Amino acid sequence: MELAWIALGIFILLAYTLEAVTGFGSIVIALSLGALLLPIELLLPILVPLNICMTGYLSWRYRKLIDLKLLLGMILPGMAVGTIIGYALLPVIDAQLAKRALGVLILVFAGRELLRLRTSSVSHARPLWQNRMITVAAGISHGLFASGGPLLVHALAGNTLDKSRFRATLVCVWFSLNSLLTLAFMLDGRLYPTLPQVAFYAPLLLIGVWLGERLHRHVNEQYFRIAIYSLLLVTGCLLLIPR
């Protein structure tokens, strides 16, 4: 078990560095890798509080870059409703089946977007009602696995945000929703037993943010998009791995 906790630390460092670069992916990466060694129900109350520490810092630092109209007008209302639904479904849903279905959706989306980038075709904006439905689905995924990023990126495909505004807006989403989930974990009693692990892994966030900030500044726009969709391909594959 000690080796499992050490490995989890490595996964956390990798995942939170990637989130500092792209604005999403920390929990889905750390959860998918960590679930190879530890139960998901044990991992979530560790990963979610760690995430609000990092995204809270990044949200405050880049608060002037947040697209408030997009955040408050479309993302947060749908994501908040979906997160509540997902959390309520936890006791009754087949988690393995839901996770694999999410993995398939991620693979289809990421593969399509990488093909589009390769052929230089334009991603057309969808009707607002479609984006709202996808955003609610992203919230349900977040309520179930604290991993709504891939579907939210799908909802935002075709947006005109540059990479810095894109990241700032996303980290504000995760700070808001994961604060809600952390409160839920506190109320249902799952948070308190994991506080020693949260404190133990917290210093890794400093390294992850330091590395991620430097990588973010040195990655150009096209490579940034490719990195996002490649990250989604990896996470989709990880979600399909039998546990």
Score class of each variant (00 low, 15 high):
Gly236Gln: 05
Val81Gly: 01
Cys172Asp: 00
Glu41Phe: 01
Gly103Leu: 06
Leu240Gly: 04
Leu89Met: 13
Thr119Asp: 06
Ile10Pro: 04
Ile6Glu: 00
Val234Pro: 04
His124Ser: 08
Phe175Gln: 03
Leu58Ala: 06
Arg167Cys: 05
Thr55Asp: 10
Arg132Trp: 11
Gly149Phe: 00
Cys53Asn: 04
Ser120His: 15
Leu187Asn: 04
Phe166Gly: 04
Pro203Lys: 10
Ser230Asp: 02
Ile12Leu: 05
Phe109Asp: 01
Pro242Gly: 14
Trp174Phe: 15
Leu156Phe: 13
Val108Pro: 05
Ile40Arg: 07
Phe224Asp: 06
Asn220Ile: 02
Ala157Asn: 08
Leu97Phe: 14
Leu44Trp: 09
Ser176Gln: 07
Leu231Ala: 06
Pro193Lys: 02
Phe175Ser: 08
Val92Cys: 00
Ile46Met: 14
Arg118Trp: 12
Ile27Glu: 12
Ala184Phe: 15
Ala15Tyr: 03
Ile10Ser: 08
Ser179Met: 11
Pro77Phe: 05
Asp94Lys: 06
Trp174Ile: 10
Leu231Lys: 02
Ala125Pro: 02
Ile75Phe: 00
Asn51Ala: 04
Arg217Ala: 09
Leu180Cys: 13
Pro150Lys: 02
Val198Arg: 09
Gly111His: 00
Asp94Ser: 12
Leu117Met: 09
Gly139Asp: 08
Leu43Gly: 05
Cys172Asn: 11
Arg217Asp: 13
Leu215Pro: 03
Ile93Glu: 03
Val122Met: 10
Ala168Met: 06
Gln130Leu: 13
Val219His: 00
Gly103Pro: 09
Leu238Asn: 09
Gly56Cys: 09
Leu43Ile: 08
Leu205His: 12
Leu90Gly: 00
Ser120Lys: 15
Ser164Leu: 15
Leu231Ser: 13
Leu44Asn: 02
Pro127Tyr: 07
His154Val: 12
Ala4Thr: 02
Val48Pro: 06
Gly139Leu: 12
Leu117His: 07
Ser32Glu: 07
Leu18Tyr: 11
Leu128Ile: 13
Ile52Cys: 08
Ser141Met: 15
Pro150Arg: 01
Phe145Lys: 08
Pro91Tyr: 01
Asn159Leu: 13
Phe109Ser: 02
Ile27His: 04
Asp162Ser: 05
Gly82Pro: 01
Leu89Gln: 03
Thr55Val: 14
Ala157His: 04
Thr160Ile: 00
His218Asn: 07
Ile12Asn: 06
Leu161Asn: 14
Arg116Lys: 11
Leu76Ala: 11
Phe185Leu: 07
Arg116Gly: 08
Ile84Gln: 11
Leu183Ala: 14
Tyr62Lys: 02
Leu42Ala: 10
Ala35Cys: 03
Ile226Cys: 13
Pro49Ser: 11
Ser147Ala: 13
Gly82Thr: 07
Leu13Ala: 12
Phe185Asn: 03
Cys53Phe: 14
Leu183Pro: 03
Leu206Pro: 10
Pro193Leu: 00
Asp188Glu: 05
Leu8Pro: 06
Val21His: 00
